[in-house]
Write a protein that binds this DNA or RNA. Structure first.
Length: 271
DNA sequence: AGAGGTACCTGGCAGC
DNA sequence: TGCTGCCAGGTACCTC
């Protein structure tokens, strides 16, 4: 479910309900996420006022005076803001109750997500410290992309999935951006020409912008903080469309296995 | 240093 | 209807 646009959508959805609110209590029903939810979060967060809700890559940062909660939705996580007395399902692992009577509810069936706490600058946290530039930052430029891709044999799709190169691009949008840039997902990153980089940076930004505007992609069950689905799936060009005609030229879309994960491309439009 | 594989979990779905 | 096998949007960590 959650790639950068979904996380950004979630962030925007919860922000107005959280910022300025005092945390009343933290209820953990299942602490076994990717890493156990630390006791320090449960003991420190109550009483704190949420000062800001930020995103870095696919991490959501709930900033308070004593520290920052670092939240990751993994593959199946979602956030809702609901009245505290709403009965939880078996996947609603955490509630962060607010003075408003609402609570931020984390649901994560696969438990690949994470909820951590740091009393320090979260940018220095082990999980965030090695992240590459955000796709919308000036630092993510064609010059940058050209430089860091030199001599890399890794497939372009996998190069884009690596958060050290660019933060927050997952499998769906990597494939979609490569289609838009006219580049095959299996091509070696080191073979990018200068103008390929220009088109790719542009394509990544365009793809992500459109997806954010549509409220994310709904595959299976993604919902935003208000429980509404995303609509970007309706505009997917290649992802999950193996065998179906390319929207641009009609050639059947091909699926490719790169590592353990599928990639999709149009053999006519992408080179 | 870089490339490739493994592991963490569970739900949904296609096929029989 | 029920079983089996496969697939999944992420990413840290291990080995070669």
């Amino acid at each position: 479910m959650p790639e950068l646009p979904e996380v950004e959508t979630a962030c925007r959805g919860i922000r107005p309900h959280l910022v300025g609110q005092r945390v009343i209590r933290v209820t953990v029903r299942e602490r076994r996420l990717r890493w156990p939810i630390p006791a320090s979060l449960v003991s420190t967060l109550p009483g704190q006022i949420i000062r800001a809700v930020d995103r870095r890559a696919k991490y959501i940062l709930l900033r308070a005076d004593a520290g920052t909660a670092i939240l990751h939705l993994g593959m199946s996580g979602s956030l809702r803001v609901v009245p505290c007395d709403t009965p939880p399902t078996k996947w609603d692992h955490v509630d962060i109750a607010l003075a408003s009577g609402q609570c931020l509810r984390l649901r994560d069936p696969r438990r690949f997500g994470a909820l951590l706490w740091t009393p320090h600058d979260p940018a220095q946290h082990k999980l965030l410290q090695a992240l590459g530039p955000e796709p919308f930052d000036d630092g993510f430029s064609d010059e940058y992309l050209y430089r860091v891709s030199r001599h890399r044999k890794v497939a372009l799709r996998d190069f884009l999935l690596n958060s050290k190169n660019v933060a927050g691009v997952g499998n769906i949008y990597a494939n979609e951006a490569l289609f838009l840039a006219g580049l095959r997902p299996g091509r070696a990153a080191g073979r990018l020409k200068r103008d390929d980089c220009t088109r790719l940076v542009d394509a990544i930004r365009t793809t992500l912008t459109q997806a954010i505007r549509a409220g994310g992609t709904t595959l299976r069950d993604f919902q935003n903080a208000d429980g509404l689905p995303g609509y970007f799936q309706q505009t997917l060009q290649v992802y999950g469309r193996a065998g179906q005609p390319c929207h641009r030229c009609g050639t059947p879309i091909r699926a490719l296995r790169l590592g353990q994960r599928s990639a999709f491309y149009c053999p006519h439009c992408q080179h």
